[in-house]
Computed example of a mutant assay.
Amino acid sequence: MKTHAYVLAEKDAPFVWQEVELHDPEDNEVLIEVVACGICHTDLAVQSGAFPSPFPNVTGHEGSGVVMKAGKSVTRVKEGDKVLCSFNHCSECGPCQTGHPAACEGFGAVNFGRLRSSAVGQKPGLSGSNGGDLYGAFFGQSTFAKHAVVMENSCVKVPDDTDLITLAPLGCGLQTGAGSVLNKLKPEKDSTLAISGLGAVGVSALLAAKYLGVQTIIVVDVVPAKLELAKQFGATHVFNARDADVVDQVKAITPYKGGVKYFVECSGSVPALKAAWAMTANMGTLLSAGTPGPGVQPPFGVFENLVGCKTYIGLCEGDSNPPEFIPFLAKLYADGHFPIDKISKAFPYDKLEEALHAMHVGETIKPILVFT
């Protein structure tokens, strides 16, 4: 079928809205009419080449929509179902088989390599208006489009009364931050937890810590307006990362002035990670929820980490199992514990540049494109 999508022709190319043709869904895929899609920095990292991906392609990986057609082997959803879309996974490796699909051994291939399935292999999925191939299947979905062919594993069925615009971003950034706290760190109420980088991942980590009742929640960022926002969402202390003595400032308010017990680094900045390691107490845990891209090494030594008895964790997608965790986050939102509507703003699909500008200048943390 013919539809329209935002196409990246090559590295550093602009997003161009153009007519495309979707190839027919395979047996384990579904065709959805896209309602909305959150904009994530990962989409922009593909555009810049920071994250590897074949070109030309269509991105978008925080989509929502309504199922129009389901492949013959699909059991998770059916025609007419509302869905929120998340990452893809192979279903066959050890982590997938034991309830940890975000740690899938084939995560890079099936989400960035545009593999439609282990059986189908690397197929483009779309054709451009000139007949040339376009790669879809970004995180199993490529939902910067009016319609998308989505892997069954990327679909999460939700109730018919679900707000598909507000909740669209649950599929990546928001579950990443929240899952880092709720699924992995699980901090005690009387513990200290710090977060650096108050984007969508950082805010959701903050909201999760607030939900758990953590007594000391510290936020570090370079934007004063974001630090003020952090206070509104429950941060007990905020610090400007540009301060030369920010490490000492943070450590000064922790027990024995030794640093925090838990740290969630969300920016992906190497200097921020180095500072976070210094702010983490001996016997504490530092978790990377943000990344600068492939090939970058942690900015601290093995010996220093060993004698500090610190734990360093890399965590993908908040160690979430989307069919279970996304409905849980949706319930937290409905119950008033996860007010993501206060950090997002919806934009018509033809206002992409306006949405990107709003994100870059801090007018909104999570812009959402609406396609209906």
Rank of each mutant, 00 (worst) to 15 (best):
V219I: 09
V20E: 04
Q175L: 05
G121S: 02
S118N: 15
D24H: 14
G234A: 07
T176F: 09
P255R: 13
R116E: 15
T98R: 06
I365Q: 08
H357L: 13
A194K: 06
G125N: 07
A241W: 06
L31S: 06
L332V: 09
C96N: 01
A281K: 07
V370G: 00
T280L: 03
K72R: 14
L126T: 07
Y262F: 13
A355H: 00
D245Q: 06
P101E: 06
V46D: 07
K310T: 12
G308C: 11
N88Y: 07
D24F: 13
Q97A: 15
S91A: 15
G106T: 13
G318W: 12
L206H: 04
G268I: 06
V34K: 03
G177M: 02
A45W: 11
S53P: 12
V214S: 06
S196G: 07
G171F: 10
N282Q: 13
V361F: 03
F328H: 14
C309Q: 15
G108V: 05
I313A: 07
S142Q: 06
V214M: 04
F55Q: 03
P56C: 01
K11I: 11
V35L: 06
V220I: 14
K261S: 13
V201T: 02
V77F: 06
G99D: 10
E19H: 05
L206P: 05
K345G: 10
T216G: 09
F51C: 10
A244R: 01
C309L: 12
T236D: 00
D161H: 13
A230Y: 10
L287I: 09
D43Y: 02
G94T: 14
Y333M: 06
K251I: 00
E79K: 15
F233C: 04
K257C: 10
H357Q: 13
K82P: 11
D133Y: 07
L115R: 03
P299H: 03
S73P: 01
K186V: 11
M283C: 14
Y6E: 03
L352M: 08
S267E: 08
A252W: 00
L306W: 12
K11V: 09
D133T: 10
E188I: 12
G63D: 05
V302Q: 13
F15H: 10
L193R: 02
L22D: 04
K331R: 13
G94M: 14
V30F: 03
H4W: 09
E105W: 11
D335A: 12
S64F: 04
